[in-house]
């Protein structure tokens, strides 16, 4: 599917999580597996070797073990916002299950979509939105445009044309001090 027609959303998180303290959004994990068949071997390995470590590190997460005879293993996770995600872990090794469980632990539970923006803010501007009128003299409010006085070129450095003209004028007047040009050549 092209990205134009996939469902999209804006960047968000659950309530104001992280403003004060961070609350882990993963609440319940149900691991269903078979005690005898081969596709659940990784799941059984995970339960034997890695599960207790995970529960020790995350006391806020409940884990249910659900043996189902001759069923393929599944991981069902529930988040604080009420969303549930199910994932098949058929023939997954124990290390992969560890990794996916860690992925679910670090998620906020909001649906994964195409994101339209990678930034969310409640205060888009602090100094105010820029307009052509910002930092301009207020007298311009009552001036009628086009105005000769305001539109004139600001006195900058002498241009090359002006310098040549002034030198030519000096020559014409009979004082052969081509100082302006001489200065330039020295530089």
């Amino acid at each position: 599917m092209p990205s134009r027609v996939t469902p999209s959303s804006y960047l968000r998180n659950v309530l104001q999580n992280g403003v004060g303290r961070y609350v882990c959004q993963l609440q319940r994990v149900t691991l269903s597996f078979c005690k005898s068949t081969n596709p659940s071997r990784g799941a059984r390995d995970f339960i034997e070797n890695h599960l207790l470590e995970f529960t020790r590190n995350n006391p806020g997460v409940v884990i249910y073990l659900d043996p189902k005879r001759h069923h393929s293993p599944k991981l069902c996770v529930e988040y604080l916002n009420g969303r549930t995600e199910t994932m098949s872990i058929d023939r997954y090794p124990a290390e992969d299950i560890c990794q996916w469980l860690d992925h679910f632990r670090t998620r906020s539970g909001v649906q994964i979509n195409r994101l339209r923006k990678n930034w969310h803010t409640d205060t888009p501007s602090i100094q105010g939105t820029w307009t052509p009128a910002t930092n301009r003299p207020t007298s311009w409010n009552v001036t009628e445009f086009p105005c000769q006085e305001i539109s004139r070129r600001l006195p900058d450095k002498e241009t090359a044309t002006e310098r040549i003209l002034s030198a030519a004028k000096a020559l014409r007047e009979g004082s052969p001090t081509n100082a302006a040009i001489g200065k330039e050549t020295e530089l």
């Binding site: 960047l11 968000r12 998180n13 104001q16 990678n118 930034w119 969310h120 803010t121 205060t123 602090i126």
Partner: peptide, 13 residues
């Protein structure tokens, strides 16, 4: 370069 203020969310790829 990201413009941020307090309580903003930013996504890092």
């Amino acid at each position: 370069q990201r413009k941020v203020t307090t309580e903003d969310l930013i996504l890092v790829g």
